[in-house]
Design a protein around this nucleic acid. Structure first.
Lengths: 245, 245
DNA sequence: TAATCATAGCGTATGGGATACGCAACCCTT
DNA sequence: AAGGGTTGCGTATCCCATACGCTATGATTA
């Protein structure tokens, strides 16, 4: 008993009236990205996406191989929006860090990104350009070819791990839900067995700030810098890294 | 530990003959983990899992709230198997690094782990014990409360990002598939536009060795150490980190 | 302008999957 | 020997991803 026709808010299709060129791969991908951002990755299904676009479900498949292809395209779209910043060769740290921050920003702007990449590997299409750019920067800065590779892999890796760890804290329906959950978990633990966690209740949760991102990044970049350019060794590391929010 | 029946080829159920106490949450979770390791996360469905156990699909739901609960339990199971190593208080670096290596080993032994955690957040049950232990180690080593939190978050974060990046390389049907894919991708790029990537064909792929893990880890730990105990500043960082495989 | 044609949009059908619901066999208790 | 909470599980429902053509559409060409 088939019955399909609401097609949401969009000039409903008339019998026999089938407009052309309404869809394109770009339109589908954009809509998917928007829907993912809005309702979450799991909420996106082909039927729902189609309905949103005011088209039939199977129409999507004219522009996308399958759902997997669609999600991959979404990931590429997002990653493609990230650029390795310009800058003087002297400031390799600034450029590299700028790129990594952009990466984190993208992951926060599109919370599903890291999940998608965790599923299919970090190296999607546009990353090639970025690797090329980063490598150039590092080599110019004095890194050997191999060390440059190792360095940016380490950095990339750190950023992704961080973002995955950070996301549940950043995006959570009620903003305090995450903190509440943590506190609840900690309350359930016996203070005798978990003295530190109890003492740190507040710290554990609030530490997920931009500063935490910068903290690890600073250490990593600073240490990498030390292997190449001793003069910058101290720069990225203040006598004592800021310790609070 | 309670004994576990093979559960494999169980005599098919006879009409009216319904044995009792064949299942338990532990049995279900173990079977799920085994199946995940064997066939991948996506291959695991409630019907297939039940069939494997020789029981009806809905029987599983007596011991597991829903699939989500099951997967969460699997993650806990794996994470619970990781311990913060003992050691002398002097060797905080050794203990912390030991823990992080164990984490990576677990992620490699159970390739789906990182995907699962990326979906639901890194902090699953047993992690509390581990955080408690790590925090104690770091504070004893001279870190302030806050810095200790920042430090292990950074480390944890690095490890997870690394593992996610590394996994596709470690587990791939034909061992060379990954390298082949990369080389193929690079070949498709115009050497004029991507001089570095072309020059690095081999390096880019082969760098994914245990050394890469240690490379970033060494830098991170070394730099963190420097903030607390200047005497160890040089230790984790040889004059020049090994540069090759 | 009319006939031709590749193609976009889409209706229908198939094969899973997750899971609510409720029955009945079991095993334990009394 | 009877009763009852529990466990295993059959059935049914609702969604999904997707294969398979059919048909209208707009561009192309005669």
């Amino acid at each position: 008993m088939p019955r399909r026709k609401p097609a949401r808010a969009r000039p409903a299709r008339k019998a026999g009236r089938v407009p052309r060129n309404t869809l394109s791969r770009a339109v589908v991908v954009d809509a998917a990205l928007a829907m993912i951002d809005r309702e979450g990755l799991d909420a996106v299904t082909m039927p729902k996406l189609a309905q949103h676009l005011g088209v039939g479900t199977m129409s999507l498949y004219r522009h996308v191989e399958d759902k997997d292809d669609l999600i991959a395209a979404v990931a590429e779209q997002v990653m493609g929006g990230i650029a390795v910043p310009d800058g003087s060769p002297d400031d390799w740290q600034g450029r590299v860090v700028g790129y990594l921050r952009a990466l984190r920003d993208a992951a926060i702007a599109h919370p599903a990104l890291s999940r998608i990449l965790a599923d299919r590997g970090l190296t999607v299409g546009p990353v090639f350009d970025q690797l090329e750019g980063l490598h150039g920067i590092l080599v110019t800065a004095g890194f050997s070819d191999t060390d440059a590779v190792r360095a940016f892999y380490s950095l990339l890796t750190y950023v992704f791990g961080f973002v995955i760890w950070e996301l549940p804290r950043v995006h959570q329906q009620p903003a305090e839900a995450y903190a509440a959950a943590w506190n609840h978990s900690i309350d359930a633990l016996d203070p005798a067995d978990y003295p530190h966690l109890h003492a740190l209740r507040s710290t554990l949760v609030t530490t997920a700030s931009p500063n935490q991102f910068e903290y690890g990044l600073r250490h990593l970049v600073g240490s990498l810098a030390a292997t190449t350019d001793p003069s910058t060794k101290q720069r990225p590391r203040p006598a004592r890294p800021p310790t609070s929010e």
